[in-house]
């Protein structure tokens, strides 16, 4: 009785032709995204400014007082994210271990 080989998930194997390996310097000129990084960033800043200004043009109905501050949501999002990233960097100092930590 013959048996088909056990199917396994592809894992990284440099000798397997099916699994792609990184290619360097093949004359890649990038894509729309890589060519317009600066434009995308500028667009982001402009959008941010515009949505902030929209705060002047509608009537808020708030549950909490701070919601009435000008640009509260934008401010909160910005500060929140910066805090998140900075605290996460601190967390990394505490919990990061080398990849084979559990194999040791």
């Amino acid at each position: 009785m013959s048996h088909p080989p056990v199917p396994t998930e592809p894992i990284f194997n440099p000798e397997d032709p099916e699994v792609p390996v990184p290619v360097r310097g093949t004359g890649d000129h990038g894509t729309w995204f890589t060519r317009h990084v600066r434009g995308i960033i500028i667009g982001l800043y402009v959008t941010a400014f515009v949505v902030l200004m929209l705060d002047l043009f509608y009537a808020k109905h708030s549950y909490f007082s701070e919601e009435d501050w000008f640009g509260f949501y934008g401010f909160y999002g910005f500060v929140g994210c910066v805090t998140l990233v900075l605290l996460a960097k601190l967390l990394r100092k505490a919990v990061m271990r080398s990849e084979d930590y559990w194999d040791a």
Partner: peptide, 18 residues
């Protein structure tokens, strides 16, 4: 209000990350 506030939150968060 909800649409604008949510957009503000998200765009400014993205701005922070960027």
């Amino acid at each position: 209000p909800h649409v604008i506030q949510q957009t503000q939150l998200l765009v400014w968060s993205a701005l922070a990350v960027g």
